[in-house]
Simulated scan of single mutants.
Amino acid sequence: MTKGRLKIHKRLYVIFYFLIIVTSIIVAEDVFLEISNFDIGKRAFHIDLGRNYAIVADYDGKVSFIDVFTLEKTEFTDSVIPMGGVYDGEFFYVIDNYKREVLKIKGNTIVRKLLLEAKPVNIKLINNDLYVVTTDPYKFYLIDRNMFIKKSVELPVHSPLIRNVGTQVFIPLFENYKNNVRLTELLFMIPNQNSYIINYNNITYPIDLVGYQGIIYFVTYFEGNLYKNEFKNQPKVAQFGKYTTEIELYRNYIVGSSLMGGVYYYDLTSNQTTVVLDEIPISDIAVSPDNEYLYAVSHIENKLYVIKDKEVYQELDTKKYPIDVEAPDNNIVLVLCTDSEELMVIRRFE
């Protein structure tokens, strides 16, 4: 084939591909397309959301602040092992695990530091306060935005996660068993009430929870068991495969995913469980704020699955090893791909 014909074929291919996209946008109800991606460093494993910002900490020393609407990116590099950050509309707050610090940042400049006696591993901004959990030793800190410690509590076991149901905050006491020995009688700390959810059913490794009509449902990591928290009773109501990292409310379902395969739906009306993508390992899920779509990423298939009801609406190829998916807006989906060191920004076109 001559060079001239080859150029013509390439141009025709580009035009044809463009027409397919335009036709899809016109004909389909919605279509999802990647619109941008960002370099986020070698060791980034989760996305923190703060208002209009996605905050991604590369544990090798860089924090990326990305405006999900304007797609502007700034980087903060004056930390050693940053492990997360939040944004209150004016200031960023970043935790440095190595220096045991909480940093208050504006304009990429540190305006205040708070030194802790433990290594921070997670931070959330809830109820206008900073919630921080640590290791060495295991502790929970409640910190106001002026960097004053309002409360600190020792935790009995390794508890690296912070969850919330609305304004109510829960700390899963994750490593509550070791070598089949129970290390604590507690499942979740409720710091705002100075109380706990007690373990009545020999439940191991609680990792996430949701609230529905005033009732708490929670899931365990290794076994993937979904429990309903009742007064001195915690019946198992569903099985979400094995190695379940997260649950979400989606319409009238509790949904969860399994690293061994599948997205699971527990119907809160019928109490029945169904599964989709049961042969595909799923690393994370997210729900669009309008409850229209459920997003699932597979770290094995390098795919983002856009799910509507219980059907796969669209599949998108991702970069290598997607580990986290977030939906900060009805029309924006973020996918963090650890091996390719990129954050993908995907847009829903209506």
Rank of each mutant, 00 (worst) to 15 (best):
F148N: 15
I149P: 09
N146G: 05
K228V: 13
L186G: 07
G261A: 09
G261R: 02
T269R: 15
G107S: 07
V255W: 05
D144A: 10
H158E: 14
V68N: 02
H9M: 14
V133N: 07
I198K: 11
L155S: 01
S257H: 13
S270R: 11
Y177H: 10
I198E: 11
I143A: 02
Y295M: 09
I207H: 05
P120M: 02
P160M: 12
E342C: 05
P82E: 02
N201A: 13
L116D: 10
T23G: 14
V276Q: 10
V325E: 03
I332D: 00
F231I: 14
I21T: 04
G262R: 09
K232Y: 13
F76N: 01
T273L: 09
E185R: 11
V14F: 07
V210T: 11
N225T: 03
F45K: 12
T167Y: 10
D48W: 06
Y313Q: 01
S258H: 02
D208L: 02
I216L: 13
E90H: 09
N180S: 08
V306S: 03
E315D: 08
F148D: 14
S64K: 01
G41P: 07
N97T: 08
D96T: 01
Y141T: 09
F45L: 11
V56G: 00
I40H: 03
F16N: 15
L12D: 12
V94S: 05
D39S: 10
E175R: 12
R163K: 15
Y59G: 00
V306E: 02
K3Y: 03
N194D: 15
T167K: 14
Y200D: 10
P120V: 04
V80S: 00
Y313I: 01
V157D: 08
N52P: 09
F16S: 15
E246M: 02
D267Y: 08
P281R: 03
E230N: 14
A296F: 05
T2Y: 01
L294R: 02
P156I: 04
S257I: 06
D267C: 08
A44M: 00
V27W: 03
V297Y: 03
M147L: 15
F76E: 04
R51A: 07
R11L: 15
E101G: 02
E230Q: 15
Q193N: 11
Y138K: 04
I20T: 08
N330F: 11
R51S: 06
Y141R: 03
K62T: 15
E315R: 12
I280A: 06
S288I: 05
K42V: 14
V94Q: 04
N192A: 12
E72F: 13
V14H: 12
I66G: 06
N199R: 06
I26C: 02
V345Y: 06
